[in-house]
Design a protein around this nucleic acid. Sequence first.
DNA 1: GTGTGTGCAAATCATTTGCAAGGGA
DNA 2: TCCCTTGCAAATGATTTGCACACAC
Lengths: 158, 158
Amino acid sequence: MNISAEIEKIKRSLMENGSKLTSQREIIVRVLLENEKDHLSAEDVFMLVKVKFPEIGLATVYRTLELLAELQIVAKMNFGDGVARYDLRGEDHEHMHHHLICQRCGALEEIKEDWLTELEERLEKEYGFKVLDHRLDFTGTYKECSNSECKRLNKAVS
Amino acid sequence: MNISAEIEKIKRSLMENGSKLTSQREIIVRVLLENEKDHLSAEDVFMLVKVKFPEIGLATVYRTLELLAELQIVAKMNFGDGVARYDLRGEDHEHMHHHLICQRCGALEEIKEDWLTELEERLEKEYGFKVLDHRLDFTGTYKECSNSECKRLNKAVS
DNA sequence: GTGTGTGCAAATCATTTGCAAGGGA
DNA sequence: TCCCTTGCAAATGATTTGCACACAC
């Protein structure tokens, strides 16, 4: 799906909620779309938005991300480093974002397979629990990372 | 394993680290052992410890939990409600704590099966990633919870 | 003594909120 | 006009830190 179609869809969701797609909100969404692979914190988003729209306030970013999370447009997540991180949920990878978190360098890789379908069916049958979303993170080490010191891209380690 | 054996083991870990098992630390550990099923926040631990040891300071609780987490004696986790929660990792359920989080009532159930062994082998082969720990949480709703208002045992909902 | 651990109060950091003002249907 | 939204500044809440004192080997 292309950018403007995504934005259209998000605009519709906002409308249904009685909200508007203001210019600030649109820029925030664009930033999220452009960084779909990363897991941006509110501060990250703020700084990226500031480049294109310097008058923006941090509170607006927080409020917008909160709103988008309520509407299930973004997923709010927590890797234990004390900041919330936000991911735009494109249809393609919705409900199937698993993470590999390297304990040595903090690298965070996203795995785009859904390994849990059977488990979820089992949960519904055996536990009477209807799964709406899940989260699967693995902490460990990459082979290549074992010896030397590494990049430490990201400090999202619990 | 009984309580004093657990404590002995923890004492040994601390020693190896050049730290001591002070009385405050011991009481904190005991509180964690007594509430192994819950997911206590630092504040929770603080209040429980205060009953037995009123002079304790909140900072000490934080420092101790941090220390225990570094030594992998407790697991620090985050359910997205803004507070870190701590779990003592007894051998019996180490590395296999999955959660069901009810979106309606916030109930948090712990599942004690390890469903991920095969996946972890696959990760090692296909991704060169050696798993040390994992985390699997499901968000959804319980059948019984669907209609009426419920217990709200725990407010750990994202 | 030396180094580790503690309680307290103050500092910090992420996030939220109150409020007066802006802007579009 | 009405209601949603915004920026700013101040408030909040969790966690951390500085520091002087206490304790154990």
